[in-house]
Design a protein around this nucleic acid. Structure first.
Lengths: 205, 205
DNA sequence: AAAGTTATGTGACAACGTGTATCATAAAGT
DNA sequence: ACTTTATGATACACGTTGTCACATAACTTT
């Protein structure tokens, strides 16, 4: 496969066409049933041109998702301690992003969506959780691994967002963002007002 | 497609062969590169026989995973308040189950796993969270919807388990079960020892 | 155990998707 | 204007899919 020059106008135009074509096709008929020929037709380009830029469908999808994540990351700001209690949290950005790209998120979350997407999203959210933890400027007690903390929170956010879309967005995005953050911070016992007794965390064996 | 009698010995034998063949093949060469012919060869049956029982590869995989899910449901018990602080929680059952069926869970959690089964697993975990909340015998403060609480916790558990398998099981199952439950109960602020000030939950708009 | 029923095996088929090759053409870069 | 390079058109070999009849084997029923 010839290595194309990414700065060439033709190359950039072709790749952008292919990416947008894939998005449109995913919205129209789901990911799995899409063939390379479909993408080429939709992008109004030759099938062989696809192979000159991407090895397979997954590679193109990855390219698209990178853009989506870049867009999300660009908007996501670090969480400062003061921001923990107001509406300007990165989770708010997340929920607004979901609303803006609702159809796409809906398909990615559904049974027709790709699990690869979810995995990437989980890593992304875990990274956000890690930086949030850093901004708190405290280390976990009881030798709780930070990774455990991060992926616990990441899964919680994604699972909640999936439920929210499934149910047809029963609550507004800003409420979801605040309650989601609050729950991750204070836990279920905080939610039921059972603040005592505070049981110490399990110790690593 | 002829409707086969599931009680017929030949049918049960064939389906079992196909299921086991798929598992073996996934172990050997991954899911994506497996063709129907491969499955038929491995199961020592004719290719057309596959089509007489399953519509496609995904259907066979779903069948395998449904069995897994049923097995987990059978073993999962309600969480009593006393069980919250010891090792006998359903989460312990969950992690032991993952270890026992590690290969299948890897598939389920991987990029090619079925999102449908994942969705069912999420609902299952959410139901478990709901019954846990009931056993606490307290209602959430600040009008927090119980569904939000449940799916927040469910996502956290599944996300954490996925990370744990991805990382090659860096901690023992019983530690994971206890830390997972503790984190859902006490939250991230509990994990960093920041118990005050206790910020009240957001109010529904 | 014999007769009837039903699942499986064989071999073949068209349709489709994939990946690659060649050569001419168009569009970019210098 | 000249050179370089990406794209388009066409074709090919190959593997996979889904579906036929028809014969045979295995199971169920009496």
């Amino acid at each position: 496969m010839t290595t194309h020059n990414p700065d060439d106008l033709r190359v950039r135009k072709t790749r952008r066409s292919l990416q947008q074509a894939l998005i449109r096709l995913i919205l129209r008929k789901g990911y799995d049933s899409i063939s390379i020929q479909d993408i080429a037709d939709e992008a109004e380009t030759a099938r062989i041109t696809f192979y000159r830029h991407y090895h397979d469908k997954e590679a193109l999808l990855t390219d698209c998702l990178n853009d989506l994540y870049e867009d999300l990351t660009r908007r996501t700001e670090r969480l400062t301690p003061q921001m923990l209690v107001n509406d300007q949290s990165p989770l708010h950005t997340f929920y607004v992003h979901i609303v803006e790209h609702e159809t796409l998120y809906r398909i990615l979350f559904s049974s027709r969506g790709s699990q690869t997407v979810m995995q990437r999203l989980r890593h992304h959210m875990a990274g956000f959780a890690l930086s949030t933890l850093e901004s708190l400027n405290r280390t976990p007690i009881g030798d709780i691994p930070v990774q455990v903390l991060a992926y616990h929170a990441a899964g919680a956010q994604i699972g909640l967002a999936m439920w929210w879309l499934d149910e047809g967005k029963p609550y507004p995005p800003d409420y979801m963002a605040r309650i989601a953050l609050w729950l991750s911070l204070h836990g279920a016992l905080g939610a039921v007002g059972a603040i005592e007794p505070r049981i110490p965390p399990p110790i690593l064996p």
